[in-house]
Computed example of a mutant assay.
Amino acid sequence: MKKQIYRFKKNQVLGAMMALTLATLSIILTPNSYAQEPVVGADNAEALFSSSDAKLHANKQVAYHIVKDLLEAGHWELADKYLSRRYLQHNPYALSGLDGVVKYFVDIRKVQAIPIPEKMTKPVVAVIAEGDLVTVMYPLPVRDKTTKQLLYTTTWFDTWRIVDGKADEHWDSALKN
C-alpha cells in the first residue's frame, strides 16, 4: 500500500511539473499569439454620427466634419467652421487655439488637402455622445518598428467638447515619444 501511495504522489508531482513545463513553453514559444480580438471599424461609420436627440446629433455632426473634412481630407482652411478660436488642445504635440492646431497640421505635419470624400473612408469603431462631449474611436494598427509587420490592433480616440456648434476642446490618446 505504501508503494502505491508513493507511486501515486510521484505521478502527481511529475504530472504537475509536465503541465507547468508545457504552459511555460507555450508562453515562451508563442509571444505574439495572445487571445486579443482585432479592433475593426463598423460596417457603416456614417450611421454612427447620427442621433435621435437633436443636440447630440448636431454635436456628432461637428465631430463627423472634423474627422472627414479636416483630419481625413486635410482641408484646414475650413477649420474655423468646426473649431472655436480658443480650441483647447490636450494633444502634447499641438498648441491650443485655432491657429495653433492649424499650424500643427499644415506647417508641422505638412498635411496636403485632397478632395473631401462623399463618405468617410477612415474606419470608425464607435461614436459616443453625452452632453457636450463626442468621442470617436478608431482602430489603431500597431506594427513592429523594424519589420513593419502588424503586431496587433488597439483603439485610438478623439474626444471633443462642442460649444455653440464648434469643437472648443480636444483630447486624444497621443503620447510623446
Score class of each variant (00 low, 15 high):
Asn44Tyr: 07
Lys68Cys: 01
Tyr104Ala: 01
Trp160Cys: 00
Ser84Val: 06
Phe157Cys: 00
Trp76Arg: 01
Lys103Cys: 08
Tyr64Met: 00
Leu140Val: 03
Glu72Ile: 02
Lys60His: 03
Ile128Thr: 03
Pro92Asp: 08
Glu77Val: 03
Arg85Gln: 15
Gln36Pro: 02
Phe105Pro: 08
Phe157Gln: 03
Asp99Leu: 02
Lys68Thr: 04
Ile116Asn: 04
Asn11Asp: 12
Phe8Arg: 11
Tyr138Gln: 13
Ala45Pro: 11
Leu150Gln: 04
Trp171Tyr: 07
Val67Lys: 00
His57Ala: 13
Val106Asp: 09
Leu56Asn: 08
Val102Arg: 05
His90Thr: 06
Gln149Arg: 14
Val40Gly: 10
Tyr93Arg: 10
Tyr6Trp: 11
Thr24Arg: 09
Pro115Trp: 06
Asn11Ile: 14
Val101Ile: 15
Ala23Ser: 15
Val40Thr: 15
Lys2Cys: 00
Leu150His: 04
Asp164Lys: 13
Ala174Cys: 10
Ile162Lys: 04
Val134Ser: 05
Ile114Ala: 10
Ala19Pro: 05
Leu29Glu: 10
Asp99Glu: 14
Asp80Phe: 09
Ala113Lys: 09
Ala19Tyr: 04
Val163Trp: 02
Met18Thr: 15
Ser84Pro: 00
Thr21Cys: 15
Gln12Cys: 12
Gln12His: 08
Leu95Lys: 14
Leu20Met: 15
Asp53Phe: 06
Val39Thr: 10
Thr146Gly: 04
His65Gly: 00
Asp164Tyr: 01
Lys60Arg: 07
Ala35Tyr: 10
Ala63Lys: 05
Ala42Leu: 09
Leu175Phe: 07
Pro38His: 06
